[in-house]
């Protein structure tokens, strides 16, 4: 398992350190040793039971279903529209907000999706790597 490293020479970097790894594509969270609740992104305490006894880095489930979604058709800051944003409920109890790459007319609540790590933008000539979800039946 490798995390993306940032260096002066690197042509790409993650949107934020410590959120995910590329191979296999997975999100990192923390897991509470007391109440077993998992959290994304990882935190040094458990937001559910307030315990400090947490596993600092666990691999989260990479599949889940859409809890709610919206197609954004106007956005500030020159962001290209439309795009789809959703709450994805992972099979291990974690909720993640992320964009969904799927035809708009196929979107629905409870739609099964899976994680994909990919380039999501560019900043100062550097490719930004982030995470999106795609329909589960979509071929790898």
């Amino acid at each position: 398992m490798t995390t993306i490293q940032t260096s002066m020479a690197s042509p790409s970097r993650p949107i934020r350190e410590g959120l995910f790894c590329v191979d296999p594509p997975s999100l990192f969270g923390s897991a509470c040793n007391q109440c077993s609740i998992r959290t994304f992104p990882a935190r040094s305490f458990c937001p559910a039971c307030n315990s400090d006894d947490v596993e600092p880095q666990v691999v989260l489930a990479s599949e889940g279903k859409i809890y709610s979604y919206t197609v954004i058709r106007q956005a500030p800051g020159g962001r290209k529209t439309p795009y789809t944003l959703a709450y994805v409920d992972l099979t291990d109890g974690v909720r993640v907000m992320a964009q969904i790459d799927a035809p708009i007319d196929t979107l629905h609540i409870d739609m099964p999706v899976r994680l994909d790590i990919r380039p999501v933008g560019e900043q100062d000539g550097c490719e930004l790597i982030g995470y999106v979800f795609v329909p589960k039946e979509c071929a790898q």
């Binding site: 949107i15 934020r16 992104p41 954004i72 106007q74 956005a75 500030p76 962001r79 795009y83 944003l85 907000m97 992320a98 964009q99 982030g130």
Partner: peptide
Amino acid sequence: LDAMQGYVMT
């Protein structure tokens, strides 16, 4: 982090 995903208030 939500803003990085394209979250806007709407």
